[in-house]
Design a protein around this nucleic acid. Structure first.
Length: 473
RNA sequence: GGUGGGUUGGCCGAGAGGCGAGGCAACGGACUGCAAAUCCGUGUACACGGGUUCAAAUCCCGUACCCACCUCCA
């Protein structure tokens, strides 16, 4: 079986058939960099990172384009509020976004264009849309350019709505619009907005509307027909609906399949700045290991809402410990090896609309098998089998981006001189304890263990000798 | 008003007509000098009310509640 995904446009699960065999082009909407990313934002990032890893494992070449919206009303408002240039606000938050990607082990996209970098392409697109009768420049002298919703019969197809059923935006006075539902492709420069936030066009100076940039970027970097367009479910309307209308209206085939991840809720509502229930990625990662946070975000299917709770996050971290513990102990015994093949059942689950929870059940079974082998003190014959299990487990973890031995995570381990010094000291104490145990002097042995425990070092006696670890690492 | 999604055992979370996914917690057992870690065992849950069917958590009808979108939103 090959990868099947739920397509928001058709509301059915269908097979992914790439436009160009062997290659998959994915566009997903990045952030409007008006603030640092919260856990909800990064959930989307993790979902698409897993999709990419799974496609690459299948031998496909993946191109991912994710935009950064670096100009918009809110950024301009923040700039005024903070009394500094809009681009400083945008860039600072863009960097915070990159830090969050990295913290959770999300590989950067193939390319991450900024909205302000595709102004010429947007102008071209507007010209095409005007020529084709799907857009018009407002005749009120505002410099605004609007998409003519009534000129596009398919408008509403993605979100399954009829134009007449839509509530007209209350906060958007008709201005130069022909229909209240027409949306801005381009916003004319307004008195008081910084000059640096405007670009020249045939209709006067102005700045991009939100939706047009994505159409322009997708076409520029992925071509006018590409495989998957994604983003959070909250973007389906109006953002993605509008993108679809613009690009199709301009004569492009655009995305073949639409993939949307469900929201991350906190306190019964979508995590959002406007609701004020956000948890910054940078903060969460201080409390719980980043790899466990990622595992938590993967624990539910991508189309299911995650109702965030500290308890569930902590519980998930414990569950991940069992998996990571197996990997560490097995690697100590037979060497890390390399990730191998993934079990068929795991592949089947992933191919079925990225059913990560089902895939995790396969992982869990494999870890149990591995732990049983580890508990066997007659390791000799089992070593080869253990190595195979480890390779299989690591392969599954690699797909999910949570292999503790991968460079992404392993390189974060403490390899400073301090770490080496600690190891030497602990080993010396453990040797003393082993000596005491051999003489059945358990008072001494336990005292050594208690000292280490008090210092934050956990001790485990295994069939292969004692091992130690720093608590919580 | 319109469009979708949801409600599963103490908790998290899959499944989508017939065999109790999986994890966490709990309890019992094995292993251990004792622990820790690990393994084994123990649970008849599917919001409520009707209906269809030999068989419903799964399909249909109704009710309640929750979430998302229709305005900026991952």
């Amino acid at each position: 079986m090959s990868l099947h995904l739920y397509d928001t446009a058709t509301r059915e699960i269908s097979e992914l058939v790439p436009v160009v065999p062997g290659h998959v082009g994915i566009y997903h909407c990045g952030l409007t960099v008006q603030g640092p990313p919260h856990l909800g934002h990064i959930r989307k990032e993790v979902v698409f990172d897993v999709l990419r890893r799974w496609l690459e494992r299948a031998g496909l070449e993946v191109t991912i384009v994710a935009n950064v919206t670096d100009i918009d009303d809110k950024i301009l408002a923040k700039a005024v509020e903070q009394d500094r240039p809009w681009f400083a606000v945008a860039y600072e938050n863009e960097r915070a976004l990159h830090a969050a990607y990295e913290a959770l082990g999300c590989r950067p996209p193939t390319y991450e264009p900024r909205a302000t970098g595709v102004v010429p392409e947007m102008i071209e697109m507007m010209q095409t849309l005007i020529e084709r009768g799907h857009a018009y420049a407002a005749d009120d002298g505002s410099g605004d350019v609007y998409f003519d919703v009534r000129s596009w019969p398919d408008y509403g197809q993605l979100s399954n709505q009829k134009v007449d059923d839509m509530q007209a935006a209350e906060d958007a006075p008709p201005e130069g619009k022909r229909d209240a539902r027409d949306f801005a492709l381009w916003k004319g420069h307004k008195e008081g907005d910084p000059e640096s936030a405007s670009w020249p066009t045939p209709w006067g100076r102005g700045r991009p509307g939100w939706h047009l940039e994505c159409s322009a970027m997708a076409a520029k970097y992925l071509g006018t027909e590409f495989d998957i367009h994604g983003g959070g479910l909250d973007l389906r309307f109006p953002h993605h609906e509008n993108e679809l209308a613009q690009s199709r209206g301009a004569g492009q085939a655009f995305a073949r399949l639409w993939m949307h991840n469900a929201m991350l809720n906190l306190g019964g509502a979508k995590m959002a700045k406007s609701v004020g229930n956000t948890l910054m990625v940078s903060e969460v990662v201080k409390r719980v290991p980043a790899i466990a946070v990622r595992f938590y975000l993967l624990s539910a299917h991508y189309r299911s809402i995650i109702e965030f709770s500290e308890e569930a996050l902590a519980e998930s971290a414990v569950g991940f410990e069992r998996i990571a513990g197996f990997v560490t102990r097995a690697a100590e015994l037979v060497g890390p090896g390399e990730p191998g093949d993934v079990p068929d059942a795991f592949a089947a689950a992933m191919d079925d609309d990225l059913s990560v929870p089902a895939a995790l059940a396969v992982l869990s079974a494999e870890v149990t098998r591995g732990n049983t082998l580890l508990g066997d003190s007659t390791a000799g014959g089992a070593a080869a089998e253990l190595g195979q299990v480890l390779a299989s487990v690591r392969a599954m973890l690699d797909v999910l981006g949570v292999d503790p031995l991968s460079p992404t995570w392993a390189d974060r381990a403490d390899d400073s001189g301090t770490g080496a010094a600690l190891g030497t000291l602990v080993d010396a104490l453990l040797a003393q304890r082993q000596e005491a145990r051999a003489e059945r002097d358990f008072t001494t042995a336990d005292r050594v263990r208690d000292q280490l425990t008090a210092a934050g070092i956990d001790i485990e006696d295994t069939p292969h000798g004692p091992r130690w670890s720093v608590k919580g690492r």
